[in-house]
Nucleic acid binder design. Sequence first.
DNA 1: GTGAAAGCGCTAACAT
DNA 2: ATGTTAGCGCTTTCAC
Lengths: 359, 359
Amino acid sequence: MNPPRRVRLQDIADSLGLSVNTVSRALAGKSAVSERTRALIKAEAERLGYVPNSVARSLVLGSNMTIGVVITNPSNPFYARLISAIEQRSRALGYSLLLMVSEENEENERRAVETMMRWGVDGALVVPVQTEVDHLRRLTSAGTTVVLVNRELSGFSCDLVGIDYRQGAYDATTHLLDSGAEHLCLLEEDLEISPVKARIEGFREALAERGVPEDAVSVLRVPTRRREARALPWEPNESYQLARELVGQLPRRSGILVGNDYFALGVYRAVTEAHRTIATDVAVVGFGDHPFSAYLMPALSSVRLPAEQVGRAAVDQLVARLSKRESPDAYTTVRYSCQLVVRDSSIASSPAQSPPGGG
Amino acid sequence: MNPPRRVRLQDIADSLGLSVNTVSRALAGKSAVSERTRALIKAEAERLGYVPNSVARSLVLGSNMTIGVVITNPSNPFYARLISAIEQRSRALGYSLLLMVSEENEENERRAVETMMRWGVDGALVVPVQTEVDHLRRLTSAGTTVVLVNRELSGFSCDLVGIDYRQGAYDATTHLLDSGAEHLCLLEEDLEISPVKARIEGFREALAERGVPEDAVSVLRVPTRRREARALPWEPNESYQLARELVGQLPRRSGILVGNDYFALGVYRAVTEAHRTIATDVAVVGFGDHPFSAYLMPALSSVRLPAEQVGRAAVDQLVARLSKRESPDAYTTVRYSCQLVVRDSSIASSPAQSPPGGG
DNA sequence: GTGAAAGCGCTAACAT
DNA sequence: ATGTTAGCGCTTTCAC
């Protein structure tokens, strides 16, 4: 059997004794076609199983209704949710998605940008790896609209849709203090990216505001080795090792804020193995509110991240830019606030201390 | 500033006083160009910032080095891993990825197939929603190579790369029996898909082999409502509700196998709330070996799924087919085996019953 | 070794 | 209302 050649406009035109042009217009819904021939053409297209050739269409139109998405790691639950949201919204607006993964690697990101330029995607949604921006600049100056997602980048002006991690960390820290924690520790990823910086800021800000002394505060970096190929950033083992060391020297009434719910798993194990109790001895709050967090024992308090909102808004922002022909003179930055979900891991650590039958 | 028009072969040719053709051949690495001009051309291309137009190239070549991927839900950790693996391997082989999400919805899958036909992707990797196959047939008969991933489909012949869920369930069930469980229950997703069927088979097979009486066995379906928009299949609440009812009537020495680690979270909570103990009273084994499972207390035994192998193999299988020009006369089915990881949730439930100091 | 010409499938401008 | 022509950027004959 020879390869079944694809049905073209020409085939429909021939079969009906019309010109390609008429067929094109009829199927495109343009006005200059009689309803009779249009019906005829549609029927014939249906009969022959005609499928428009997007590649040819894109070549002449110069646009291909495609959005390039560059993500650092789809296995990270947050980015998985983000991809879902982006795909859903893009699909609703008629855009296809070219997915690229940078693996926290600058070189991969460069190649992704190159790919997008080759394909001439209409727009790009990028979670940038780091601070290098020259390739992104090339991309925009080649006429591609770029919207940064989740991570901010100084020295590169474009729209950004992100999350107010500072506020999230601030709220979580304040909550830990309200729950009675006096010694605070932040366990963070070891990447130099804006979400981490913002969380540290929010953490510090809350503590300063309450006048917590410097020596009662520490920020520790978990060696996630994200940049090593195939390393899972959320493998709890690293945070477990770190928490083991930490837990020995942990004073009473301490609170730990972790930059990722997976880190909390390591903390839980370390604390439990040291025969101390989450919540009572050590209050814990996570980031991400992963589905498992509500089901840990005790249930983990966590800062919920609006991945769906961010994904949707990023697509909307991108598409809005595309409809405006000219290059913008001002860029938008949107940071969605995140919401602390209080559960058992951070409830006030004192109730057991009230004397039974007292009062 | 007027839109910066993209650099074409023509621009390089003009700038060097050559023909488009020569430039094309030079950059394509063809032989019929003198080394001197080739160097000149490459330098000029570099200088002007030339980026090949993949759309134009695809139109003439009829192939675009693109693979269409249709996934039911990227937020599902298993599919997230699968996407990662597929992307990584595709990238290594020079293919771009068109990502589409079906949301367990037949209509979306149809649209995804339509999109792939429009773009004329070289091949398609599909996790099929259900049993409908007419659109997939159209896709293949239009000349697109299809490889099914993770879910099997009767009535549609093509290559398939999947997982031996039957074997996984068989091993897990045997293990539960070996651990002393006498009353067995399987908590499964409520989708009519091959992985679920295979797990039920494996479960039943192991029990039959050991002569476990029918009335000591049950298979329950968790109403995951996957098909409802935005419903998270792994939201543990449904399994929690189900397990609550179950746990009241659970005899001693029972074992629960769940089709998804997230279900185990619901079971853990229900069992704990009923003042019974995981492992001792109820042995539990999960499926998926999600990162959190090893950190539950007690640590969850689970069947590890080779998502990375499957993703990589699926791409390799697809690309292998693409290199063979003619339509195949035989299709390959590969099922990767999965490995049970035994942890504390399913250790023998009897040690505490041996009389202290006895023997 | 290089150039001229044709054409991939489609749409837009300009006829008629 | 329909047909003709041109051209998107590239590759592939086929000349020279």
